[in-house]
Amino acid sequence: MSHKFVLLVCLAVATVCSAAKVPVAVYYESLCPDSAKFITEQLYPALKSELRDVVEITFVPFGKSTYSTLGSDVTFMCHHGPNECYGNKVHACAIDKIQSDSYRLDSTRESLTLDFINCLMKAGKNFPDNVYPGQRCASESQVNWENIKVCANSTEGSALLRQAGDVTLKLKEPLTSVPTILFNEQFDSKVNKNAQVNFVGTLCRYVGAPQPRICADHNAASGLAKVSGLFTTLLGIWLLRYLF
């Protein structure tokens, strides 16, 4: 077998593996408590693990907002008020503007964006001195706040948020709850609900072999829980039958 053939096989395998990432889209709002809970408690911990290598994440910060246009002007009405409109613009601009730094080998554009969004969502709706935490989160996440701020306060931010709105409004199944999570660009109400309380377990159902260790551990834990539940049920039936 020639070295060239081995190389081609390796490249083919690498291509298949790299194409195996699961597309996950998160439709959310910047000041939505349920969005914050999902991103900070479910999504962020999962994507800081080995699962980050099997997910292609897309953030869409619009939710139940609406917009209207008058000429070149765009006016937004947001689910949690004007502050959320500004927050949504910050998120949209961050998603567009954040770039990885070549000298930071441990960070990618995706990881920096995830860190920044997680920090913003963790801040919730209450800001000390009414100061939006954009600059603080940018500093903590080591991203350029100035680029994001200029974007969010300009027509560019409005255009980016409008794009997020168009993507949301074009969903095959109209968005009825926030957050809404799509796997493989398909909406399933049961999957959406499960993902919000058990994102790792839900995601692992879509990940092909070989699965990351975290999926194997999760499957094993789920199997043990099912066996334990079955044993408890059978024990209860036995006790009812023979002791009462």
Rank of each mutant, 00 (worst) to 15 (best):
T108G: 11
R109E: 11
R109Q: 15
S111N: 10
L114D: 04
D115C: 01
N118R: 10
L120I: 13
M121T: 00
M121D: 12
M121I: 01
M121V: 01
A123K: 13
G124Q: 03
G124T: 09
K125A: 13
D129N: 15
N130M: 11
P133A: 04
Q135H: 11
R136T: 12
R136N: 06
E140N: 12
S141L: 09
N144Q: 14
W145G: 03
E146M: 12
N147P: 00
N147G: 12
I148Q: 06
C151R: 10
N153Q: 14
S154Q: 06
T155A: 10
E156W: 05
E156I: 08
G157C: 08
S158R: 08
S158Q: 14
L160T: 04
L161D: 07
R162I: 01
G165C: 07
T168F: 05
T168P: 08
T168A: 09
T168I: 05
L169Y: 06
K170R: 15
L171Y: 05
E173G: 01
P174E: 03
P174F: 07
P174W: 09
P174C: 07
L175K: 02
L175F: 07
T176Q: 15
S177E: 13
S177C: 13
S177V: 13
V178Q: 07
P179R: 07
L182H: 07
F183E: 02
F183P: 00
F183N: 00
E185Q: 14
Q186K: 11
Q186L: 10
F187S: 04
K190Q: 13
V191Y: 05
N192L: 06
N194E: 15
A195G: 06
Q196R: 10
F199C: 07
G201W: 08
G201K: 09
G201C: 04
L203Y: 04
L203G: 02
C204D: 03
R205N: 14
G208I: 07
A209W: 02
A209H: 04
A209P: 02
P210K: 02
P212F: 03
C215D: 05
C215I: 13
D217F: 10
A221G: 05
A221I: 00
S222W: 02
L224V: 02
A225T: 01
S228T: 00
F231Q: 05
T232G: 04
T232F: 06
T233D: 03
L234N: 00
L235Q: 02
